[in-house]
């Protein structure tokens, strides 16, 4: 079985809110890993990883020039920060949560 790593070993992240939508930006530390991360961290994989938090549709956008992916997760913030009962109504902690996701380690 392939070695597994946490995303935080090769990526950093920032997340933020717009109404009830959270977006999670994922950036590779080293451009060499961009292709691998793009292949393994799909919208479906993130949807599955976040299954314990109520959320809607997930779209993924690619920004190859800066080595980043952007995940836009709808209906993930309990109605948005103006009415959300969630501790993380602003969604800024989703970055750290995504970095805990495990994927197959990239080849040496």
């Amino acid at each position: 079985m392939a070695n597994r790593i946490k995303l935080r070993q090769i990526c950093h992240s920032r997340s933020g809110d717009k109404a009830d939508t959270v977006n999670i930006g994922l950036i590779v530390y080293d451009q060499i890993h961009y292709e691998w991360v793009t292949e393994h961290v799909t919208a479906e994989a993130v949807d599955d990883y976040l299954s314990g938090i109520p959320h809607g549709e997930i779209e993924r956008y690619e920004l190859p020039k800066i080595g980043a992916l952007n995940f836009v997760v709808r209906h993930a913030l309990g109605g948005g920060v103006s009415r959300s009962l969630m501790i993380d109504g602003h969604g800024k902690g989703f970055s750290a949560i995504l970095l805990d996701m495990e994927i197959d380690a990239p080849p040496e």
């Binding site: 950093h12 920032r14 809110d17 717009k18 977006n23 530390y29 800066i66 952007n70």
Partner: peptide
């Protein structure tokens, strides 16, 4: 580059 890239992605939806 890391701080600027992170902030570029902050509260962003479709980057194009």
């Amino acid at each position: 580059e890391r701080t600027v890239k992170e902030q570029l992605l902050y509260e962003l939806h479709d980057p194009s």
